[in-house]
Design a protein around this nucleic acid. Structure first.
Lengths: 261, 261
DNA sequence: CGATTGTTTGACGGGTCTCAAACTAAGTGG
DNA sequence: CCACTTAGTTTGAGACCCGTCAAACAATCG
């Protein structure tokens, strides 16, 4: 709980190097980013719509959700951010917030000034590229979510969310693939899944009765991963969580920018 | 129709400078990008899922759609690209395609090698930032689409799509706000709106009968913009189509990267 | 122990899907 | 110029998934 800023930045660095190759100087630059941690309660708006954002934040502990809203005051979560995630890295290049960022549970965040992130990106093109890549992967996850909401029914959609959370919690080093501290009220789950809380309840009941997974206030436990994946039509590739910086993939692709800077 | 590569790059440059400040050298760099145009028929896959992409493409004429697919072979369009748009700029940093890119109508595209785009980004940090920003805005549009699919009914959803297309066609300089060449088969519209073609038909009929808008094979005509916007709950801000590079906004934000490179 | 927040369950209604068939438009070849 | 084909649009009937409304139940905290 009481993690030092240093620990958090190491976790961020681990996340970045999973997908982008960073040299020693660049890694040091990331670890030396300035920032201050704040702790917020569930429902607290870290960013409000229309606000001009000056800091990006890393989730240290807890969970943040990105929200859109229609006139009927129905909310729709468009992204969930776990410990180690840069929740609004994109605000560095588009500082006018078009969606809110809200704590889903008691949450600690580390706020890093845009100026520091820009300076890091300016000094190290590989960092600029890593930031760009993180934003693109964020969009890929969002893209999968459109497919989810548009083309899967409530059961499959809920199962898909659980699969995604399982993979992301595991990658973040929190809990295991089959048991992790993912717990939202059914109301908030409805905001994520585009369902009413009543239907969320019925859907979770099916997953429970079929002995596939339990999603409760005390966390999530998966009893039958294979069946869950099947119901969800889940393919984890889009999360880009498997390291690629050791093969010839990303590293090779990076070279042109590296060489000419 | 027979536009020169030069014309297309000028259109691209116009798009970029709408949202990012680029100096003279940077503008010249964009205009000197190499590429070749190809013409494809509706249904042609410019990019297939799983493919390793080596070129990004700009839409010259026609329209491209980005597709995801679930196991039931239901397709979901996650983005539409109009003339002047960089359809898969993101592939520069994530070359493994996670979704297909398909021509929706007869389409001409300009393919630009990743290497050239990387070199431009490496030589000019402002170009790297502009590319990053375009990807982030793409994601913002996607984010609005999640809200659309998740929280609006068929009528409102269709109206929202028409509003978005109206603004984007206008910004691209094609047709007018109330009359523009947006025409897809109702089957493809269903792929975009996450509806069956039958229900697309019924929905368009309501818009037609209420004298709000006509979407036909010969294009789209809007009869009552105010009513359409109201039905759609449309707010164009998320498209980021109004120039901001003349105020102190983006230009000021750019300075840190400019200065230290 | 009451207040509050969240979960669970039931009955009913409506928006969208499915299946099916008729209709229209455009192109092709005899 | 006219059958014929093909792709797309339009309309109807019935079914199903999920939303709405309502109320009981459970858990947590002062």
């Amino acid at each position: 709980m009481a993690q030092s800023v240093q620990n958090i930045l190491e976790r961020l660095l681990k996340r970045l190097t999973l997908r982008s190759a960073l040299g020693e100087a660049e890694q040091r630059c990331i670890l030396e980013l300035p920032g201050r941690t704040i702790r917020v309660s569930p429902g607290y708006d870290v960013v409000r719509i229309g606000e001009r954002v000056t800091h990006s934040c890393i989730v240290v502990d807890g969970m943040l959700g990105r929200f859109g809203q229609n006139v009927a005051a129905q909310r729709q979560v468009t992204a969930l951010y776990l410990p180690g995630d840069m929740a609004n890295l994109y605000s560095v290049v588009v500082p006018e917030a078009r969606s809110a960022l809200q704590a889903c549970v008691p949450t600690t965040i580390l706020q890093i000034p845009h100026a520091a992130l820009r300076e890091a990106a300016a000094n190290f093109p590989a960092i600029a590229e890593a930031f760009w890549r993180e934003c693109v992967i964020d969009a890929a996850v969002l893209s999968e979510w459109v497919l989810n909401v548009g083309r899967r029914n409530a059961l499959s959609r809920a199962a898909h969310l659980i699969c995604e959370m399982a993979c992301r919690f595991e990658a973040a080093g929190i809990g295991s693939r089959t048991s992790f501290p993912f717990s939202l009220t059914q109301e908030r789950l409805g905001d994520v899944l585009a369902l009413t809380s009543v239907h969320v309840n019925r859907t979770l009941k099916v997953l429970r009765d079929d002995r596939i997974a339990d999603v409760t206030q005390r966390g999530t436990v998966i009893h039958d991963w294979a069946k869950l994946v099947h119901v969800a039509e889940f393919d984890p590739d889009y999360l880009q969580l498997r390291s690629k910086t050791n093969g010839h993939g990303v590293r090779a692709a990076l070279e042109p920018i590296r060489l000419s800077s």
